[in-house]
Amino acid sequence: MKIALIGYGKMGKAIEEIALEKGHEIVLKIDADNQGDFTADNLKKADVAIEFTSPHSAVENIKKCLEFGVPVVSGSTGWLEHWNEVKEKCEDKNGALLYASNYSVGVNIFFELNKYLAKMMQPHQEYDVMLEEIHHTQKKDSPSGTAITLAEGVMQAFKNKKQWVNHISDNVDDLEIISERVDPAPGTHKIKYRSAIDDIEIIHTAHNRKGFAGGAVLAAEFLVGKKGIYSMKEVLGL
């Protein structure tokens, strides 16, 4: 498989390492210093693009890949207010897009565990629920995309939670997500149910970027040759 890396920071380099170990070829690397190389001719050398950039550049990067007819796996977060725009572009170009807020196999299992636990807890109104997430100081968005996905999973069961907020709140309709930025911290996510009697917590802690990078390569392998919009649920059969 020939891969274009759109974004060549720490995550891009981790993806490159795993892709090469699996026998794939990196045919293009795009970062802030060589945007002029992000052309149709260069991109079309790839079977698939893997895009990990920043919230302010992700949408245009994804649309560019779709415009040039190259399937794209995106792991950038913080841009989903433009989801419908990107979805329409993918459909208009009969393209292929796979998006996940987190590509770690363990995190995607954690997503499903979170939703299952929320369904179990919902009838027990003596418990309140909140989320915590910790990442390194270079992470540009807050809360993390993973935390937002977890919050949405909770709110599917807890209809009384009307919105998530990224601060402590006295409003019972709010689902709190508390964010912390410290180094070094690849990522920790906690869902806590609290009552006067006891607490119940589930926690996922990443030890390094390999889980995210390996899942992104797995997603790219899945997407090659396909059309449409996918998530890690399809990749992992969850």
Rank of each mutant, 00 (worst) to 15 (best):
P143R: 00
P71V: 09
G36Q: 10
I15V: 14
E25S: 11
E91C: 14
K63H: 04
K13F: 14
A216E: 03
D128C: 15
A216S: 11
Y103T: 04
L117T: 08
A14T: 05
D199H: 06
N34E: 10
I200F: 09
H189L: 05
I148L: 08
K192V: 09
V165E: 02
L223V: 04
H189M: 14
K10R: 15
V107S: 10
G95L: 03
A206T: 07
G69I: 08
R194S: 15
T137V: 11
L5W: 02
M155F: 00
Q122M: 12
Q163N: 13
F222E: 04
Y103H: 07
A213T: 05
R209W: 14
V72F: 00
M232R: 06
E91K: 15
H82F: 12
S76L: 00
G214W: 09
K119P: 01
A46C: 02
K93V: 13
T137D: 12
N171H: 02
M120H: 11
S169Q: 09
I200W: 07
Q122I: 14
E176N: 03
N61R: 15
E234R: 06
P186N: 02
L238V: 12
G78E: 00
I168E: 00
L218K: 12
L117A: 11
V172R: 13
T149I: 02
C90G: 05
H189Y: 13
K44G: 01
T188Q: 14
V48S: 02
D92H: 11
A14K: 07
A147K: 03
E234K: 02
D199E: 02
K87I: 07
E21N: 15
A46V: 04
V217N: 03
E60T: 05
K93D: 10
V224D: 05
D92R: 08
G78I: 04
L80P: 11
P186R: 06
K63W: 06
F212V: 12
H207C: 15
M155G: 05
L28F: 03
Y103G: 00
H24N: 15
V224R: 08
N84Q: 08
I62S: 02
K45L: 12
T77G: 12
M130R: 15
K227T: 05
